Amino acid sequence: MRRRWVLIGAAVAAVVVAAVVANPFGTEAAPSAADDPSAVPVETTEVTRRDLTTDKEFQATVTFGESWVLHTDATGVVTGSHDEGEVVGYGEELIRIDDKPVVLARGDMPMYRELAKVDTSSRDDAGNRRKRQTGDDVAQLQRFLLDAGFDANGRLAADGTFGGVTESALKDWQKAVGLGVTGKVDSAQIVFAPQPVRIASADRVGDAFSELEVDPTDAEVQVDTNTRDRGFLPEGASVVVRLPDTDDALDGVVASQQETQDDSGSTVWRTTIVTDPAIDPALTATSATVEVTRVVAEDVLTVPVAALLALAEGGYAVETVGGDGATTLVGVEVGEVADGIAEIDGNIAEGDEVVVPG
Rank of each mutant, 00 (worst) to 15 (best):
A30M: 11
V185S: 01
V303P: 10
A237V: 04
D51F: 08
F64G: 03
T272I: 11
P277L: 04
V20Q: 13
A30N: 02
A105Q: 05
D207W: 00
T227Q: 06
L179C: 05
P101Q: 06
V77E: 15
L309I: 06
V303W: 09
G358Y: 13
Y90W: 15
D137V: 13
S256W: 03
A169V: 06
L309P: 03
T182P: 01
V88F: 12
D159F: 02
D207G: 08
P37Y: 04
G252K: 00
V321D: 04
D119F: 04
T45H: 11
Y316V: 01
A326F: 06
P41E: 12
A249E: 13
A188C: 01
V300D: 05
A255C: 05
V103A: 01
V62F: 10
S266Y: 05
G154P: 09
D352C: 04
R129I: 07
E220I: 12
G351I: 02
G351M: 01
Q133M: 14
G149K: 01
R155G: 00
Y90M: 08
A312N: 12
S238I: 08
V181Q: 09
D83T: 13
E66V: 15
A317F: 08
R4M: 14
G206P: 07
D299M: 07
V241G: 07
G65T: 10
V102I: 14
D247K: 14
L141F: 02
T217L: 09
K117D: 05
P277N: 10
V78T: 08
V118C: 01
A310Q: 15
V223R: 11
G9A: 09
I8T: 12
V330K: 05
S201T: 15
V6Y: 07
L212Y: 13
G325P: 09
T293Q: 14
V21S: 13
T166V: 03
S121L: 10
T27C: 02
A237L: 06
T72K: 05
V292H: 01
D159T: 01
V214S: 09
G323V: 12
G323D: 14
S67D: 13
G65P: 07
T275R: 09
T289P: 07
A312L: 10
R242P: 00
L104K: 09
A285G: 14
K131R: 15
D99N: 15
D247T: 14
P216M: 04
A14M: 09
V330S: 00
Q195T: 10
E92F: 10
L145E: 02
E333R: 12
A157Q: 10
E291P: 03
A342Q: 04
N153H: 05
A74R: 13
D159S: 02
G265A: 01
E343H: 04
Q142H: 00
F64Y: 15
V17K: 11
R129L: 12
G107H: 08
R49Q: 11
A157M: 07
I95H: 08
R155M: 02
V268P: 00
V296H: 05
V205N: 06
T272S: 15
S38T: 12
T134C: 02
I348Q: 02
T54E: 14
G91E: 07
T225M: 04
G89E: 12
A237C: 03
S201D: 15
